[in-house]
Computed example of a mutant assay.
Amino acid sequence: MARIAYFDCLSGISGDMTLGALVDLGADIAAIEAAVRSMGLPELSMTAEIVKKCGFRAVHVKVGHPDEHAHRHLHHIHEMIDRATEVDETAKTLAKKIFQEVAVAEAKVHNSTLEKVHFHEVGAVDSIADIVGTAVAFGMLGIETVAASPVPTGTGFITIAHGRVSVPAPATADILRGVLIAPSDIEAELTTPTGAAILKATSQSFGPMPGMTIHSIGYGAGTRDLTGQANVLRVLLGDANQTSVIANVDADRAVVLETNIDDSTAQQIADCAERLMAAGALDAFQTPCTMKKGRAGILLTVIAAPSRVGMLEQIIFEHTSSIGIRRHSVDRHKLVRHAETIETKFGPIRGKVVTLPSGQLRLTIEDDDARALASINKTTTDDIRREATKAWMNRV
């Protein structure tokens, strides 16, 4: 069975909260300190102490180091990681992946490049220690798979190196693109760029706790004292049920919108479906149904990302006769896929390549492209697909 860690982010996530929870789960703080010091930080110290937050016990990890005013670039961080004699290659790769998430976000926010972007808060020694220490702790605990709850960011304003900004901070918000966010009215920065990057780099899914057998639970404390809830991160460690983690399968959460319609024309519903897809719906389809009083009707179903729900409901109300929409959240499993353009004797054609749980690859040709090439070349779509599949298999 795969060793899985579930991050329960009730009060958000930061680097020190993560490391505290992992130490509480059994990661050796002395070994983590030695690993981080081997990066060329001989004066660094790391201590773990038990504290209470709103009456709950948790571990707080504190990083001590001399004052510094260095603004490091990504290559400086990589050099430090590469020279760490007490950090194994797996942990080095994970630490670089976490820093990469921060670098990409910072470059986008500041309209810079990965080579030129420099780290402020995340380039400080304590953040470096939190990230590399987390990577080392993952190896110590044998964590193979990570899942996480929806992530609250908090609200209000904070002051960073570039001045006063809204919560979530710009880099944090960019890192969390595609991550399920939990609502929160707490006026504080609950999730930091470091915490967001750790989750983005390690988590395979965001949502309810997956099927797992829990073996141990760790609590990592943040520095704030919140009103009404403990400022802690809970990490549950155990073995995943064999059916809960499937290789090459991504997981996310979507919203399903449904409405029964019996007094719109077929043309109106078709127009609405086109508008829904153009507005970002993941799918929109119609199912014949029998409504009350024996009337024939259509069940219009839309699958959407949570962020698109309001816009899509407005389209349904404006372009059909619907007077009510049902909505519910669903968990989705999706095969890992990527887009490819395949060169054929008929011309280029787009396709999707999916990876099956077994690791085998499967190609699906874009139908619009197949029809367009068939028309131009005066042949059939079957010929186009066969030629594209042959060309693709010769490349694999």
Rank of each mutant, 00 (worst) to 15 (best):
I4F: 04
I4V: 05
D8M: 08
T18A: 12
L19V: 08
L22T: 03
L25M: 03
L25K: 01
A27I: 01
A31Y: 00
A31V: 11
S38F: 00
M39Q: 14
P42I: 09
E43S: 15
S45P: 04
E49A: 12
I50M: 11
I50Y: 14
K53C: 03
F56I: 13
H60Q: 13
V63E: 05
D82I: 08
A84Y: 13
V87E: 08
A91K: 01
T93C: 10
L94E: 13
A95C: 08
Q100F: 14
N111Q: 14
S112I: 03
T113D: 12
V117M: 10
F119R: 08
A124G: 12
S127D: 05
S127M: 02
A129F: 04
V132Y: 05
T134I: 05
I143K: 10
A148Q: 11
S149K: 08
V151K: 02
G156E: 10
F157T: 15
F157C: 15
A161D: 10
H162C: 07
V167C: 06
P168E: 12
P168R: 02
A169R: 00
A173S: 01
D174Q: 14
R177V: 07
R177P: 09
G178S: 10
P183W: 10
S184L: 00
A188H: 03
L190W: 01
T191F: 01
A197E: 00
T202V: 03
S203N: 01
G207M: 00
G207C: 04
G207T: 03
P208A: 14
P210H: 02
T213R: 12
I214G: 06
H215K: 05
S216F: 03
G220V: 00
G228W: 03
A230F: 07
R234Q: 15
L236G: 08
L236I: 14
L237Y: 01
G238S: 06
A240N: 09
A240T: 13
S244G: 06
S244I: 02
A247V: 11
V249Y: 10
D252A: 14
Q267V: 06
D271L: 15
C272E: 10
G280S: 07
G294D: 06
I298D: 00
I298F: 02
L299Y: 00
T301M: 02
R308P: 05
L312M: 10
I315H: 01
I315S: 03
I316H: 09
H319S: 09
H333A: 13
K334Q: 14
K334I: 09
V336K: 06
T341S: 11
V353K: 07
L356N: 10
Q360M: 12
L363H: 07
T364R: 13
E366F: 08
D367N: 14
L373E: 02
K378R: 15
K378H: 15
D383I: 14
I384M: 13
A391T: 12
N394L: 06
